[in-house]
């Protein structure tokens, strides 16, 4: 090495660099394999035969798969919006107010996070078949209601936990200052508290969206014959054979999530830039 590394400059030493590379391989090799084989010109997924885009064509002609994909995105979008509002409201309530049984309430809130998914799934199945059967003759997207409700129930606690953690660092005097300067309760909330919560809201939204998009277990128990989501559809396709069509569909899903995450992060960054530029 030509330059001497500073004491805490670990990244310029080879053992750590090697470790970094190994971690990257461990994380991304399976995904890259999946993507690569989506271009494989063979019905089998084992041996590379040559490059083709046929499987993508097949995906776009498979109307069942496309419907499932649309269902998944719709469910994820709606459940994200509702989870975000509900989670943020719960977080603010827990942060701001003291009420009887608050510790019990906060504990109950974390339950959907810790309860095994399979239990949640079975519970949802029982609930929607016995307690509150979801009518199956509703027009789309109302037919997705049962799944959306199930997804909201397991993703809004994540939003609440993230926002609650963010609120702990809020300086109460900021809100008091806003009120002192003439803001009503609502204005102070929108002008001071919401901007403070914003990073947590974005993180929570991304988490809720991806949780919903790739959920299989709970969805499997709540989905009806006409309300199949993408993961459930892929599962049923794999039961027959793992064709490169599945790979192609999965690659598309990865691209969509990465794109959405990038947009989310960019929005966050743009916002900071906008504020620094002074409107």
């Amino acid at each position: 090495m030509s330059k001497k590394a500073a004491p805490l400059d670990y990244l310029s030493r080879w053992p750590l660099r090697l470790w970094l590379v190994l971690v990257a391989i461990f994380l991304y090799a399976p995904l890259l394999t999946l993507m690569a084989f989506s271009f494989n010109d063979s019905r089998r997924n084992i041996v590379w035969q040559g490059f083709t885009l046929d499987w993508y064509g097949a995906v776009f002609q498979d109307s069942d798969l496309l419907t499932a994909f649309g269902n998944s995105l719709t469910i994820a979008a709606i459940s994200t919006v509702v989870s975000l509002i509900l989670g943020a409201m719960v977080a603010v309530a827990c942060w701001r107010f003291r009420f009887p049984l608050k510790p019990a309430f906060e504990g109950a809130l974390a339950l959907p996070i810790v309860v095994p998914e399979i239990c949640m799934g079975v519970a949802m199945l029982v609930f929607f078949s016995r307690v509150m059967p979801w009518p199956d003759d509703l027009p789309w997207p109302f037919s997705l209601g049962a799944i959306i409700i199930a997804h909201i129930s397991f993703s809004f606690p994540f939003v609440a936990v993230i926002v609650r953690a963010r609120l702990a660092s809020f300086n109460r005097e900021l809100e008091e200052a806003a009120k002192d300067l003439g803001a009503s309760e609502w204005r102070a909330f929108m002008d001071v508290l919401v901007p403070h919560m914003k990073p947590a809201l974005i993180a929570g939204a991304l988490l809720a969206f991806t949780l919903s998009l790739d959920d299989f277990v709970i969805t499997f128990f709540t989905a009806g014959p006409d309300t199949v989501t993408f993961p459930v559809k892929v599962y049923s396709m794999v039961r027959f054979s793992v064709t490169p069509e599945v790979n192609a569909a999965s690659t598309l899903l990865i691209v969509v999530t990465v794109l959405l995450t990038a947009i989310g992060l960019k929005m966050q960054g743009k916002d900071v830039a906008k504020m620094e530029g002074g409107q």
Partner: peptide, 17 residues
């Protein structure tokens, strides 16, 4: 507070970040 003819300088200044 928002209807009173007083304004306050807070100890932490509470400047909106």
């Amino acid at each position: 507070p928002n209807k009173r003819p007083v304004n306050m300088v807070f100890q932490s200044y509470a400047v909106f970040p």
